[in-house]
Structure formats: C-alpha cells, structure tokens
Design a protein around this nucleic acid. Structure first.
Lengths: 128, 128
DNA sequence: CCAAAAGGATTACGAGTGTAGTCTTTCATG
DNA sequence: CATGAAAGACTACACTCGTAATCCTTTTGG
C-alpha cells in the first residue's frame, strides 16, 4: 500500500460530508452547499478541497475547464479510523470501556437501546 | 464557569494518565514513569506538564522547593468529552450509528459482547 | 564557598490547521 | 479584441502540537 490512510481534519471532514452525500460534484456546488450551512468564505472552502486533493482523500476528474471531485476515502473507512482512534487513545483500545462509559455517564435514548438490542441479536445469530 | 473544558492533546493525555493513576506526584516521578513507557526526553515531559498547568487541566501545590501536581480534569470527564466529540463530529451526535458501525465493520471480542449484554440488562432493569 | 545538579520558565522550530488573500489562466461578453 | 469574472494555484499568518534546548534559580555535595 503506497499511501497511509489520509488524516482528515475537522474542517476538512465537512467538505467530505458534502461529497459523501453526492459525488462527483464541482467546486461550485460544494461551495454553495457549505456556504449554506457554515459561514466559511468561498476561498476557505476551496483551500480545504485543495488540501483534501493533496492528501489523496478526494480525486478530481477534468470536466471541460473545471474539475469534478469525488471522495476517495469512504465515510465508513473514515468512521472506522476515527472510532479506532478514540478507542485506542481514550479507552485502551477496547470497546467495553466505551460502552460502560456511556451506560454510566451518558443518557441513552430509546433508539440507542433498540440499536443495542439489534446489535446483540445479530452477534448471537452470527456467533452460531 | 470561567474556563471552557480544557482540550487535552494526545501527548498531554499520556501525562494525565500518569496523574490519574496516582496523584499528587512530583514532576520527577512523572518523568520517571513516562520515561519508562515512552521514549520521550525529560524536557518534553516537563513541557507537556507545563502546558497542562497552563490549560488548567492540572494544578500544582508547592511542596518545599518543588511542586506536586494533581489532575483537575477527571479521567471520566475527559472520556466524556472525547466520546461526545467523536459522536458529534463523526456520527451526527447519535450513539446508534456508532453502534451500528461497530456491529457492521468491527469485530467484537467476547469481552465486548459480555459488556454489551450487561449494559443492556442494566438499562432494561432501570427502564422500569 | 563553589560548582554542579535539579526544577521550573522561556524560547525554538517545523508540520498541520483554520481561515483567508493574491496571482494566473481562461472563458465569456460587450 | 479588451475586460472582467470564475476556477484553480500559490502564498499568508497566527495558533496548536510534538519535540526539545537554553536560561535562570535554588539547593546541595565536596
């Protein structure tokens, strides 16, 4: 593997979000979207896009005189990286302390509980 | 509240770990511990300690000619902050997507499954 | 008493980040 | 054809972080 998985910064991840929702997209569209739900300057958004390109987290294909951008890193890959990172940094690499933490210190909604139940079921089924 | 919760960097959190395990401690002890399980230079460790002091994440009480340091931020508070941050940044602020993500993309160990089960039980009991 | 060690305070310096601004090229329009 | 707007490329700048080195005091061992 030539490239280590690119590290995406907080601000950059917002740009990725736009691309994960729809791709490919021109910078114009991306700028429009992000200006709608953030207060970033157009230049800022383009800079972030450029950095993502440099990192190889997005690719660009020429479309006439402009480019169309697409994510190279999937949202799932990114979520995995980030989750892994939290687990390793904060919870000694194990999921149980994270879960214990949530059960003790954070309130779980009905949806969370339902999801938990589904998760367990799936595991039990799979676990033969 | 005068101070927003201090942001602890990766390296700084290692120093916090030492203090969470035992406190108060002198910088000498902290340096010794961290030199044992990292390859940081003494100066580096002292710098990190100093930054944590500046951020208000640890406090120092004078003990003769030196200081004894104690954490101001608890490990649980920190874990909460970091967990919250992951959820907000990566999973739209909800726990279920995190769980769904783990169930679909990460392998869970027996311990994790057991913890999950206990968690669910506890919740069910509490939930009336 | 003096020189070295210990502890803390200050300074350093390159990479990454947030947040733009400027420069360049290229179409499109009057 | 000359201009101006749009997209991208390059530059900027302050701040955090990782990683120390240097400077200043105070204590202490010879």
């Amino acid at each position: 593997m030539p490239h280590p998985p690119p590290a995406i910064s907080e601000a950059e991840s917002r740009v990725m979000e736009a691309l994960w929702r729809k791709s490919p997209q021109s910078s114009e569209e991306i700028v429009a979207i992000l200006q709608r739900d953030s207060d970033w300057h157009e230049k800022t958004i383009r800079t972030l896009l450029g950095r993502l390109l440099g990192k190889g987290a997005v690719s660009a294909e020429k479309d006439g005189r402009r480019y169309l951008y697409s994510p190279t890193l999937s949202r799932e890959q990114w979520q995995s990286q980030e989750s892994r990172s939290l687990l390793d940094r904060v919870f000694g690499g194990r999921l149980s302390p994270l879960l214990a933490h949530f059960s003790e210190h954070e309130k779980l909604g009905a949806k969370d509980v339902a999801e938990l139940r589904r998760l367990l079921e799936r595991i039990e089924k799979k676990g033969r």
